[in-house]
Design a protein around this nucleic acid. Sequence first.
DNA 1: AGATAATGGATAGTGCTGTTATCCGATGTG
DNA 2: CACATCGGATAACAGCACTATCCATTATCT
Lengths: 215, 215
Amino acid sequence: MRIGELSRISGVTVPTIKYYLRDGLLPPGELTSRNQAQYDERHVRRLKLIRALVDVAGLSIAGVRDALAAIDSHPDSRHNLLGKVMHRIAAPPALADDAALAEGDIEVTALVKDLGWDVKPDNPAWRSAAEAIATIRALGAGVVLDRLTGYARAMHDVAELDLAMAADITDLDQLIELVVLGSLLGDPLLTALRRLAEEDVSSRRMRAAIPPDPA
Amino acid sequence: MRIGELSRISGVTVPTIKYYLRDGLLPPGELTSRNQAQYDERHVRRLKLIRALVDVAGLSIAGVRDALAAIDSHPDSRHNLLGKVMHRIAAPPALADDAALAEGDIEVTALVKDLGWDVKPDNPAWRSAAEAIATIRALGAGVVLDRLTGYARAMHDVAELDLAMAADITDLDQLIELVVLGSLLGDPLLTALRRLAEEDVSSRRMRAAIPPDPA
DNA sequence: AGATAATGGATAGTGCTGTTATCCGATGTG
DNA sequence: CACATCGGATAACAGCACTATCCATTATCT
């Protein structure tokens, strides 16, 4: 197919497709002459992927580039595959306040030690956690953190599920794509599920506090 | 204090403070004359809050405005307080594909029914969940969703922790602020914890797969 | 008191990002 | 052969979050 049909099928405008081609997000089609190229199903899929990462996962184009680079890399073994992927798709750091960050770091260190997690401080998520904790404390919302280990345990359950999937998959290219999508698209899904679960818990408690309806 | 000192203490430049004032994110100081105003600790705190929502929670200025409006509202009762807040701080919808969205919606409906959650479809998170699920399926990463109820249960644990905090707090203004901050700043924290937990689970499984070191 | 600096307020300009438009000569299609 | 479409390069655009400039006024310093 040519660019017009690719546009029609994918729902992405021709100028935008050209822009993605320029930026290297989308691989060029196969040139059949000086100004004709053939695109195929892989291009359609790649476009869907880009739009999903932008619209649903909320990534910037630069973030999409990193994510796609991770997906396109061909890992040689499962060993530390996840660690390498995490480094590549990590969000850029936010907080600059060194003092606050150091305090957050201490809390993360304590948490990790407390739970006996086998995690290294160079994981970008370590810094993200430290930033989030420092910020929450700085705003006087420390109460939220009283249950930090509880939150960590719940996310550990999530992580178990994340990796349970990996056990069944032998193809490393397929695995790495699932890890990336599971992480990046999984985040907004988990956020939404949290909000829904909050509504359930809230309404459950409300009912418990009110005498049962005799009707 | 005047705007210069407010800037020095908060680390936000004077032009930016003026911009926030114009936009109504920051309430005006008390005018002592035509071109002099007094600011206080509340302004410092509000600035920290804005920066946290932008830098850590990743909100746009419009999103910050909504969040602040939610924080500033004075609820008359605990009843459905959380639901109202959730509506106000919800992220704007992403997906337009009606067919895909409808399928996602069916999956959310099934999930909620399956778990017996007391949740209404007008919760904005319902749509977000449907969007995320539809997107993941559309990209052929449906395996990720095989454990959807597991993810939902884990997030239910998180929600229990979220609301456990609320029980101890009697002041509604304080409560609403904690709910907003716990949600918006809690999201990146949970994401980071998920990544850390994944590293732990991964390294644990690696060790289990390798014969124990005799040393 | 007089020089200097800072202030509130209005208005305009900036840099970045993501996308869209225009133009070209070449190619495909009816 | 007419006319749409193409790939490719370059320019233009809109939105966002700031940042800079200007002004008449007010505060501060000596």
